[in-house]
Design a protein around this nucleic acid. Structure first.
Lengths: 190, 190
DNA sequence: CAACTTCGCTAGCACTGCTAGAATCGCTGC
DNA sequence: GCAGCGATTCTAGCAGTGCTAGCGAAGTTG
């Protein structure tokens, strides 16, 4: 069985190599720069190798997206844990989310902008996605009041998502970002 | 001057023809189907003609986006005018905005998702964009309280934008849409 | 009616995601 | 140690993309 396992290990390693290369290339030069040729050159294999691991470019992006969600979830968790009280947690988590989207636009796009056939709002969604959403939900729990927590979280998430994307594409003035965040938090914290 | 004006008129007509064809094709089959070849065939000219009118495909999308904004502004204005009181106006305008995005996904994408080099949050922004934003602003004015109206409007817009895009791409459950809208409106109406 | 200007078209470039089939590698049994 | 065999990787190519150089055919002007 040794040969078999070694092959599987190598295969898994190369799969990670692909995802990592795709992600780094995207973060450095944007997704437009991530062509199958370029990516193949980066991992020092030929193009068809990519297709032995993933169904296509979109599947690679989906893998990157899952990785990104895991990272986002970790960042949110840390920030939430380091906050003194629900109000501070809400503000910190919101700022953290927005900062993440702003700091890693390509990664954020793969996660939440690019149309990708990942199951999202279902039990079959990859764990990292559910964890990231769970962080938001736990942060909002103290502020739910009579609202359904799940629905409230989706709404708050929507607002954060809008803030990130509209600002990043230059549709809203960057210099108002902090004030918009403040407004959002104030409106959602009672 | 007659020949000159006739030529300009013909040129303007063809420009409208291009924009209309692009828009209809996009709404019918999505932006992926709007290739320069396909579009050229649709208007019964050859490809290079497109480039005598627009710098490239993005510029055509931008023109479609401006048209879409004019339409959105008109819809919002009508709905707002037909509302009895600020609270109803807020609910109606929000629902109208979301409905617009959901009903015309391709058009909405050109306006607010696709990266396009239109000036947005500046005085030089095309009138339709400013009008659409103005409708939102006027709707929110009664609820500004101590918040800056411009900032508040941007924040509310972000939330609506997030609701539309995240739901449309399947990242949030469609069946919660009404409840999310209700939560958003309640949180922003005091 | 000839010269000219303007304009749209044909043909083609460099690139994209993706894939069939050849070639090469490493493992296996003799 | 080596021939044969499978699995795997590569070469080469397809059909499509946005975009453009330069030719040819109009319509316009003297």
């Amino acid at each position: 069985m040794s040969i078999q396992t070694r092959r599987e290990r190598e295969r898994a390693e190369r799969e990670r190599l692909i995802v990592t290369a795709a992600r780094e290339l995207a973060e450095a030069e944007g997704w437009d720069a991530v062509t199958t040729r370029r990516l193949a050159a980066e991992i020092e294999y030929s193009q068809p190798v990519l297709y032995r691991h993933f169904k296509g470019k979109d599947a690679i992006m989906a893998a990157v997206a899952v990785e990104g969600c895991a990272e986002l979830a970790a960042e949110l968790r840390e920030v939430r844990a380091g906050s003194a009280g629900p109000a501070e947690a809400l503000a910190n988590v919101a700022a953290c989310y927005a900062g993440f989207g702003d700091r890693r636009p390509a990664l954020y796009d793969a996660m939440f902008t690019h149309a990708v056939d990942l199951p999202f709002a279902t039990p079959e969604a990859p764990a990292p996605l559910r964890e990231a959403f769970g962080e938001l939900r736990d942060t909002l729990r103290p502020f739910a009041g009579e609202d359904d927590l799940e629905v409230l979280t989706e709404t708050f998430w929507s607002a954060l998502h809008g803030l990130v994307t509209l600002m990043r594409d230059g549709r809203m003035r960057r210099e108002h970002h902090e004030r918009r965040l403040a407004v959002l938090i104030r409106r959602f914290s009672n």
